[in-house]
Simulated assay, not measured.
Amino acid sequence: MQPIVVSALALIRDRRLLMVTARERDVLYLPGGKLEPGESPVAALIRESREEVAVRLDPATVVELFTVRTQAHGEPDGQEVHMTLFAAEPADDSPEPRASSEVGELHWVTSADAVRCPPAGVATLQGLRDRGLID
């Protein structure tokens, strides 16, 4: 079974990570999504950040942090997600993050919010905490 390959944004402010919930749901996930055919991971990150939270990223600030490989949430057993997490800064002319039609709400979270995350989110919060980036 081929893994689901995803790029995700780690936007951190005041030691809190931006995460989102889908409409009518309580599960936290990172802004990001699947790569389209022929799309690079960074291009997917930039596109998905704009689509999901209206943030225009400065491509010069994009830094790959790490990749989480785990069971994909809501998928059959054995279906893995390979989520590469990137840090990046909004472009000077970017609006503040806001929910899009794909997103219900924005949440600034710490590692204490891992109980509301699927496996990839739990691993991401732990990885960021281990690196001293979030509380």
Rank of each mutant, 00 (worst) to 15 (best):
M83G: 03
E52P: 04
R50D: 04
L85V: 15
E52W: 03
V6N: 08
E39A: 06
M1Y: 05
E52Y: 03
G38R: 00
V115S: 15
S40I: 05
L57R: 01
H107A: 10
I46D: 03
V62W: 03
G127C: 06
E96D: 13
D58M: 04
E24Y: 04
A43Q: 15
P59F: 01
R25Q: 14
V63H: 06
Q71L: 08
V6H: 03
T124W: 05
R131M: 09
R47L: 12
D26I: 10
S111E: 08
M83F: 01
Q79A: 12
G38K: 07
P76V: 13
E105A: 11
L18S: 05
P118I: 08
L18P: 04
L106G: 04
D26T: 13
L30P: 04
R25K: 15
L35P: 05
D77H: 14
A72Y: 05
P31R: 04
G132Q: 02
A8G: 00
C117R: 09
S40W: 08
L125I: 15
A120K: 02
G32E: 07
T84G: 09
A44Y: 01
Q71C: 03
H82V: 02
V68A: 08
R129P: 12
A88F: 11
V55M: 13
S94P: 13
Q79K: 09
A123I: 05
D14G: 14
A72S: 10
S7A: 13
E52G: 02
R116C: 01
R23A: 15
Q126L: 14
E96L: 15
D113E: 13
E39V: 10
S101H: 15
R116T: 09
R129K: 14
Q2I: 12
I46R: 08
L9S: 03
V6Q: 03
T124G: 10
E80Y: 02
V103P: 11
A91C: 06
P37M: 02
E24K: 09
A88M: 07
R47H: 02
L133H: 03
L85C: 11
R56W: 14
V68F: 01
E64D: 07
P97S: 12
P3F: 07
V55S: 01
E75T: 07
L128S: 05
G32R: 10
F86W: 02
L133S: 04
K34R: 15
L128W: 01
R129Y: 10
M19L: 13
D77C: 13
I134M: 07
L18K: 07
S94I: 12
V63F: 06
S101M: 14
S7L: 12
R129S: 06
G32V: 12
L17A: 11
P119V: 09
P118S: 14
A123S: 14
A114S: 11
G104V: 02
P37E: 02
A112N: 02
P95C: 09
R116N: 09
A22E: 12
F86M: 01
M1W: 04
E24Q: 13
P118F: 07
H73P: 11
M83S: 08
P3Y: 07
V68T: 10
A44D: 05
V27L: 13
T21N: 05
D14S: 10
T70L: 01
V115H: 15
R50I: 04
A112E: 07
P119N: 09
M19G: 01
E96F: 06
C117H: 13
E51Q: 10
S101C: 14
L57T: 01
T21M: 11
L17F: 10
E102W: 05
E89T: 08
Q126V: 15
A112Q: 10
D77S: 14
D130Y: 10
V20A: 00
L28H: 02
